[in-house]
Structures are given as structure tokens and as C-alpha cells.
Amino acid sequence: MTLRRRLSDVLYVRPLLLLSLLLIPPLLWLGIIYLGSLFNLMLYSFYSLNDFTGQVEYRFSLSAFQQLFSSSANVDIVVRTTLMALVVTLACIAIGFPIAYYIAFYTKGNARTFWYLMVLLPLWSSYLIKVYAWRLILAGEGVVSWFFNLLGLGWLLQGILSVPVVGGPSLSNSYLGMFLVFTYIWLPYMILPIITALERVPKSLIQASSDLGARPGQTFRKIIWPLVIPGVAAGSIFTFSLTLGDYIIPQVVGQPGFFIGQMVYVQQGTAGNLPLAAAFSVVPVVIIAIYLLIVRRMGAFNAL
């Protein structure tokens, strides 16, 4: 019996050996490199920075969290980022739902593949390039201004930009612009799970509903929407979590006011304060965990 044959037999007789051979390398990678790193990150948030030497002190301390929550500017950053993530999520639902609804119910065959691909392509085109495109579009001399001026509505744009908080010197330097870019970038993540959820709605239920005399609006409210909520919740996990962690968009299309991701980036980089950066990166984890608990009740995990 050749060695190869014998090895094969052993693997057949002892499936547990085969299982461990298959699982150990990927688990080493994900469990040790990835989970281990996350764990190490959590540890870092409980270290402190020695003010004199600028070195990290590897001893338990709550000073990073103290530093985080004692400054009202830092609390503002957390609130600002969370609010942006919520508003972006709502906008993605509002824009994404009709697109998903149309694709799921009113296209079939090749047309369906085509439109599906048309949602997938923006998702897969380079993130940076899309952000950059919006810089071109929103710039003071860019397409949006040009369009408003063409319609003789330049005053309207100026009016919108002069609104405090959301406005700014130009769309490419305002929260409104940032909101548009976030919504654009994460929109496909909302559309895809909603399409999947809509496709799962049994057609017979819809027919039954209209046979029994429900108007289309009623059918939508009472039959379709409750069945699609898990899909919407699944999409919102992506839009919410991705907005919370992003630091490039606020940097490219943004205001001086910082976002969580930017703060993490700056603290680890120029400021060289890894414990504070780690503490800041724990914040989105906690917010996402709370958010996941909420959406789990809506059945989002079955629609991922």
C-alpha cells in the first residue's frame, strides 16, 4: 500500500482528523491574527500614554477613556458621527427601496440580470474614485452649481448653503455634501438585501390580498412591508456601521468638525496616541453592538 493510499484511508476512517486538518489553518489565521488583533486593540484602550516619554505604558489604566469622555469636543464627535450614520441609513432606505422594489417585481430574465448588474457595478467600482467624483460634482465650480445656475436657481443653492449646521462655503465643504456622498457610497448595500427579501415574499400572498379586496397601498403596508423589514434591517447594518467607521469621506468632502474614524486616524498617526485611538475605536463597536441588538429583533440576521 502506498503512503498516499494509507494517508487517504486514515483520513476516511477518522473524519475528525480530516476536519481538524481543514479547520486549523483558517482558524489560526482568523482566530489568532484577526481576533487576536481585535483583542489586542481592546487592551490598548486600557493602556495609557506617558506624557513625558510619549511611550505607551503597558499597565491597566482608564486614562484613555477618561480623556475621551472628559472633553466635550470628543463627545460631540461621537454624537455627530452617530447622527450622520442614522440619517444616511434612513436616506438609503428611502432611495434604495423603490429601486429594489422595481427590480424585484417588475423586471425578469435578461433585463433583471442587467439591472442587478447595474446596482452591482457602482458597488464594485473603486471607493476612492467614487468619493473623488463627488468632489468634482459638488465643487463650487462643479456640475451641481452649474445646473442650478442654468435653471436660474443659483440663489436657491446659496440659500441652502447658508443654512447653519448643514451648509458651508460650498457643497463640497458642508455636512449636506458629506451626507450626499455617504448616501451614494453605501446605497447598493441597502438595495441588495432588500431585493433578496422582496424576492422571498410569496407571490400567492400578494394575490390573495388583492383577491380579498385590498387596495395596492393596503397590500403593501400590511403584507409586503412587514415581510421585507428583515431585509431593510440587514441593509441598515451595513450603511450604519460603514458610516460610523469611515474617515476618508469626511476628509475629502468635509467640514472642520471631526468624525470618529478621522479621530482614530489622527490619534494613531500624527498625534501618536495609540491608547486614545484604541479607545475611540471601541466607541463604534459599542454603538454597532447596541444597533445589532435592536435590529436582531427585526430578524435582520436571517436576511444577511
Partner: peptide, 24 residues
């Protein structure tokens, strides 16, 4: 647990993966 472990790198924001690896 493995299912969660597989999804985690794409469910958590990339910045977390980045800074976690950096600290390690």
C-alpha cells in the same frame, strides 16, 4: 462561532481591522 468569525472582518468597519492589526 466560525460563521460569525468569517463575517466579522466585513461587518465591522475597515478602520477597526486596520488599527487592530496596527497595534498588534
Amino acid at each position: 462561532f466560525i460563521t460569525v468569525l468569517l463575517i466579522l472582518p466585513i461587518a465591522l468597519p475597515g478602520i477597526l481591522t486596520g488599527i487592530a492589526l496596527l497595534t498588534t
